[in-house]
Amino acid sequence: MDERVTVLKKQIRAVVVAGGTDEITYQSEWLGYLPFPVDHWVEYQGKTFSGDFPFDWTLDDLASLERTGFLEKLEAYENPEDRFDRCIRYRVHIGCA
């Protein structure tokens, strides 16, 4: 696990431990035209907290945490007409090293 993924794991763990549920949600969207990039964020109880993540984090970082067992994908949606419009709900396993 690289340093960026380790930082994400620590931040996700801190938010979940302080809150009342063990679920987070990843969301992404694109306005559909340049110069706007694809926007993505992670929410906990409906509030974004990924603003403190390292600038270059990606969905692949969450996939890495899923492979380690820290995150468990519960539900995933990708708009069939817009691959940038997606929502993935995860359960966070705090006890996972």
Rank of each mutant, 00 (worst) to 15 (best):
T48M: 14
R83G: 03
W30G: 11
Y77K: 05
V38C: 03
G19T: 11
G32C: 04
Y90H: 06
G69E: 03
R67I: 10
V42R: 00
Y44I: 13
R83Y: 00
W41M: 06
D39P: 13
W30F: 07
A97C: 09
V17G: 08
E29G: 12
N79L: 00
A97M: 04
S64H: 10
R4H: 04
T48E: 14
K9Y: 03
L65Q: 03
K10F: 02
F53W: 08
E29Q: 05
R89S: 09
D2N: 15
L71D: 02
E78R: 10
S50F: 06
F84I: 00
T21S: 10
E3P: 02
E78Y: 06
A18K: 06
F84L: 00
L71Y: 02
I94L: 08
V38E: 05
D2M: 08
Q27M: 07
H40F: 08
Y77G: 05
L59C: 10
V38G: 14
I12M: 01
R83C: 08
K9P: 15
F84R: 01
Y90I: 12
A76P: 01
F49M: 09
H93P: 10
R89Y: 00
D39G: 14
Y77E: 05
K9E: 03
K9L: 11
E66T: 15
P80L: 00
Y90N: 09
E81F: 04
Q27C: 12
Y33M: 03
V17R: 05
R83I: 11
C87T: 11
L65I: 11
W57S: 05
V7W: 02
D82S: 02
F53K: 09
G46R: 07
V16H: 01
L8Y: 08
K10R: 09
D56K: 12
A97L: 13
V17Y: 02
T6R: 12
A63N: 10
L74P: 06
V38Y: 01
I24T: 14
P54C: 03
S28E: 01
F36Y: 04
L8C: 15
S50V: 12
Y26H: 03
E43T: 15
K10E: 01
G69I: 13
C96V: 15
L59S: 04
E78A: 06
D60Y: 12
F70R: 07
K10M: 04
Q11V: 14
T48K: 15
I12W: 01
E66H: 07
H40G: 11
Q27A: 10
L59Q: 05
A97D: 10
L74Q: 13
D2I: 12
E75V: 07
A97I: 13
L34K: 13
G46T: 14
D22S: 15
Y44N: 10
T25N: 00
G51S: 09
E23P: 00
P54D: 00
E75D: 11
L31I: 11
E43P: 07
P35Y: 00
M1S: 04
K73N: 15
L8M: 13
Y26L: 07
G20Y: 03
C96R: 13
D61Y: 06
